[in-house]
């Protein structure tokens, strides 16, 4: 529904009515068909083959938080895309990484970004980090019907809390249930392996550089054991997406920076294919 297609061309009354600062609420009232969770689905028997995004990992360090994702999308046992991006900036101080149905996930991220931006523009101040995390909960919850039909979307939300001056990580389940993770988190098909890796390598006093290496190690381990997670593709120069959020805001590592981390890990793994070893006791 377009604002200026009305006969007079003026803004419709709903646009000028004071009320909610939420773009999702406005969209729900003005153009409900554009809301991702608002489409009726026909009942389907069995699994539908749709591209799925896989592993996302996050870890915090004293000055911020890192969020990273592999680049593979799978459709059944076919690799649907080798260079998909599953980690996005949500706003200046937060990022979201999404596993699950790729098409829906990308649409949801687009709406989530707009939701945060819209609030900030209307109110003149950004939402608190908790407020942002709760809005994402609402979005995931509205997708529950689709999730139960196999079109689940599960995010990790990470950001710099400007009030508390620290990086924070939130993980979600398909019902929109939200829990704050302390230290590190992983979601997606490779998350079991990634979490094992994070658990052994994580330390609370990591530097930013060590934290970025840590998440790439975890993705490497996930790709090692999970067929749906893509490892770094040195031949095609497809590396994981690694993002860092500090008090200076969101930053995505350049291809050159990722390449450096990946190559360092790769070189070490030529000698030790299972990666760094943790102490036995």
């Amino acid at each position: 529904m377009e604002a200026n297609t009305r006969s007079t061309g003026r803004l419709p009354a709903a646009f000028l009515t004071p009320g909610s600062s939420s773009f999702m609420d406005f969209l729900g009232a003005q153009a409900p068909e554009l809301l991702p969770g608002n489409r009726p689905l026909p009942p389907v028997a069995g699994a539908v083959e749709i591209p799925h995004g896989t592993t996302i990992v996050a870890a915090s360090f004293p000055g911020g938080v890192v969020l990273a994702g592999d680049r593979r999308a799978t459709m059944g046992n076919v690799i649907a895309q080798r260079d998909i991006e599953k980690v996005f900036p949500a706003d200046e101080y937060s990022a979201v990484g999404i596993a699950g149905t790729a098409g829906l996930a990308v649409e949801m991220v687009k709406l989530f970004q707009l939701e945060l931006e819209h609030f900030e523009k209307v109110e003149g101040v950004p939402l608190s980090l908790e407020g942002k995390a709760n809005r994402l909960s609402t979005m995931i919850r509205s997708n529950l019907g689709m999730a139960l039909q196999g079109l689940a979307v599960v995010p990790i939300f990470a950001g710099w809390d400007v009030d508390r001056q620290k990086g924070r990580i939130f993980s979600y389940d398909v019902t929109g249930g939200r829990s704050e993770e302390h230290g590190f988190a992983a979601i997606g098909s490779g998350s079991v392996f990634a979490r094992g890796s994070l658990k052994k390598l994580f330390r609370p006093d990591l530097t930013e550089g060590q934290a970025t290496t840590l998440v790439v190690q975890a993705l490497y381990d996930a790709a090692d054991d999970d067929s749906a997670t893509g490892g770094p593709d040195l031949a095609r120069r497809i590396y994981p997406i690694v993002t860092v959020i500090t008090d200076e805001g969101f930053r995505k590592l350049t291809e050159a920076q990722c390449s450096e981390i990946v190559r360092a890990i790769h070189d070490r793994r030529l000698d030790e294919p299972d990666g760094p070893r943790a102490a036995l006791l």
């Binding site: 969209l27 931006e117 819209h118």
Partner: peptide, 12 residues
């Protein structure tokens, strides 16, 4: 606010 809503809806 009407303008912000118009712009965000159009961009979306």
């Amino acid at each position: 606010i009407g303008g912000v809503r118009y712009a965000d809806l159009r961009g979306y």
